[in-house]
Amino acid sequence: MANVSTLLADRRAEFTGYSFAFLDDMAKREIRRSILKAIAIPGHQVPFGSREMPIARGWGTGGLQITLALVGPTDAIKVIDQGDDASVNAANLRRLIAKTTGATEVYATHEATLIQTRHRIPEERLGAGQILILQVPVPEPLRFVERSVAAARAMHAERDYAQMWLALYEDIVRRGEVSAGAGYPVMVNHRFIMAPSPIPRWDIPKLHHAQSLFLFGAGREKRIYAVPPFTDVRPLEFEDFPFDTEHFDGKSCIRCGATDSYLTESPREDGSKVAVCSDSSYCDDTLSGRKVVNRW
């Protein structure tokens, strides 16, 4: 411990003039308490005192506050936006975290101890020591079926989810399928319906009985919730309309050639579109010949 605190003191002095990890100590303790409560009640939204951050609300302040409350100087930090380490927002967040803590910046999924993410869960299976922190715009899955926040909370408390099921039923009747693409609602631990943040359906099965811890932070809405390791997480589905992920039949990544990852479309100058891996770490691995053995 001695060398950690020495290191910490050195780095703090060396780097910024802000507190270690930007937030003051009391703020971090309050956030950690909320995180512990969230882990104790999987899928339940715990209120927390969301702080003003040096980025605007809606740009990942919830995820950032969780990351900053947990990060230590020996952590390896990875930040991705739509799977991409190099996007401007991800790069800025990663730089802020590293600068105020001395944590190492990494791109490779398997090297990271903390991964803050928007809209994706990495393709490589996360291990027992890793924590994935998701940025959440709308933490309330019932928002779209119940306008009143108080009524929605009562519905959670009473496990009264008929309205949600009715919305899914109406979707199937009128469109032939459940239209939710990103952020497909899930049932956590047979108790709470949870908004998994806008991850694609492709990533939904990864939440079920994972080895890693998932934390969800909504800065604007001031809510933290969690899926602890080995928790039951199931998409809401009717018996005769089972949940299905996206399919990329016949398509492969134009960069690395992968056919087994979540692909996004990238426009070219001539107006055509090409498919490319959304997870840049996985794409790099495939390109460099590193075999990712741990898949979900």
Partner: peptide, 9 residues
């Protein structure tokens, strides 16, 4: 649905 029916058909 409130009575836990879960088959659309």
């Amino acid at each position: 649905l409130a009575a836990d029916w879960r088959r659309v058909s």
